[in-house]
Amino acid sequence: MARKPKLQETEKGTVLFNVDPIIIKDHYEVDYIHSYAQDSPFFRGLAEGRLLGSRCPSCDYTYGTPRAHCMRCGDKTEWVDLPLEGRVHTYTTCYFGGEEFLEETPFHLILVEFDGVDTLFLSRLIGVEPGEIEIGMRVRAKFRRLSQFKVTDVYFVPA
């Protein structure tokens, strides 16, 4: 019998937006296998209700967002507990956002400054209305009870 090769029929169609030019939907998705690597203790700390920064033993520079090596002198840093209270260094209220965060709008972003710490920490502030935030306002860290092992496991509220 003569062979008659033929592709299987499929109903897996294409979403078509336009025909001149032809514009189609081209789906793309990926799950990364992401290691926090040297930053891992920070994320473990959040699950334990600790906010970890780093300090350089050589030059004493203290980081409000941790890094394993000092950007000033290049030495390896040590982990330090940051105070759980700080002040708003600057802020904004976002009414729009990247697609992933659009549903959460409006939300408040703040950079937090801590006494005795040289650099800042980016976080969300909740429990205030737009217009109630001020630079210098005291804020306190809170932690999610059920950790997601994301930097958003910590957030801030007015102190």
């Binding site: 600057t90 904004t92 976002c94 956002g97 972003l109 930097v151």
Partner: peptide, 24 residues
């Protein structure tokens, strides 16, 4: 993408914080 993006990754938000401090 470890420390900034997940908080609400949005460049207009970052620039808003910068200019807020400039205003201050």
């Amino acid at each position: 993408t470890n420390f900034d993006y997940p908080v609400g990754g949005f460049y207009t938000g970052y620039y808003a914080m910068m200019v807020r401090r400039h205003m201050y």
